[in-house]
């Protein structure tokens, strides 16, 4: 089984992992003091993997995504994409940022259509794709609304739709479902997993919800509090396709959740004492 998987891999992939953090460090220079956000991080994400990252808040998880996106340069080490160092905005990734980053002067439809517009897709095809995507994230009928008129959760879904609509090779997601109520979150997790199982994009997904990480990911990386290191790197061997609604009752789910929590909780405790 393993041999077969490796053989299939080498056919379509180069020897490089798609995303690689090669001993990456990030130091923020404050006015009075500098602090180390990330210290000597070495993680590689192979093509097609759904990789979840959990860790205490403020541990520099967003920093990692910004580096993959090429919006931020590491202070030390190199971030590689297909073996090449990331330099400048990486247009092969789609980024669902923590903030919604919508264009407030554009309607929902024109916001979601923006990446397609930038890629020169024709008007009619664009409209079709956008409507389909809005339907998928449960925003059909809100196409003509402006971001200001929507709730925080709805804006978040617009952002998600805007990223999924052009099917980028890599999706970076920074707590995309954090602001949603739990029912809606489950529905959107389900949508995301279905879309992902179809497109097999590479996903780096930051969350503070361990359950979400186990339910969605092929792998969960647990980060420590600042300066960030990897505390645990766990493969999630729950078979796919997964049903988000019932995966939580899988006995492996409970065991993995427990194992991850055991790794994560000292970090959170440590922060509280510090």
């Amino acid at each position: 089984m393993n041999v077969m998987a490796a053989g299939a891999d080498s056919e379509q992939r180069t020897d490089h992992p798609l995303i690689e953090f090669d001993h990456v460090g990030m130091i923020y220079q404050g006015a009075r003091q500098s602090f180390v956000a990330v210290d000597d991080l070495a993680v590689a994400v192979p093509r097609g993997q759904f990789c979840c990252v959990v860790g205490p808040s403020g541990c520099g998880k967003s920093t990692l995504l910004n580096m993959v996106a090429g919006l931020l340069e590491p202070s030390r080490g190199t971030v590689r994409y297909e073996g090449e160092p990331v330099q400048g905005p990486n247009t092969r990734v789609g980024y669902v940022t923590q903030k919604d980053n919508l264009l407030p002067w554009r309607s929902v439809r024109r916001n979601v259509g923006l990446p397609l517009e930038l890629r020169g897709m024709g008007k009619r095809e664009r409209a079709e794709r956008v409507d389909q995507m809005l339907d998928l994230v449960g925003l059909a009928g809100f196409g003509d609304a402006y971001p200001r008129e929507l709730s925080g959760g709805m804006r978040k879904r617009v952002t998600l739709a805007r990223t999924l609509v052009y099917e980028p090779e890599v999706i970076l997601a920074d707590e995309p479902f954090g602001a949603l109520d739990s029912q809606l979150r489950t529905v959107l997790q389900d949508q995301l997993v279905r879309i992902w199982e179809r497109t097999r994009a590479t996903v780096v997904f930051i969350t503070h919800d361990l359950g979400e990480a186990v339910a969605l990911g092929d792998r969960v990386v647990v980060m420590s509090s600042r300066p960030s290191r990897v505390v645990l790197d766990r493969t999630i061997d729950i078979p796919r396709p997964r049903d988000i609604f019932s995966v939580r009752f899988d006995p492996r789910f409970a065991a993995l959740h427990e194992e991850l929590w055991a790794a994560l909780s000292p970090e959170i405790e440590g922060r509280r004492r510090a």
């Binding site: 996106a69 919006l71 905005p89 247009t91 990734v93 980024y95 980053n101 264009l103 990446p115 930038l118």
Partner: peptide
């Protein structure tokens, strides 16, 4: 950040 995200697109 908005400019960055739009650049990525």
């Amino acid at each position: 950040e908005l400019l960055g995200v739009v650049s990525l697109m």
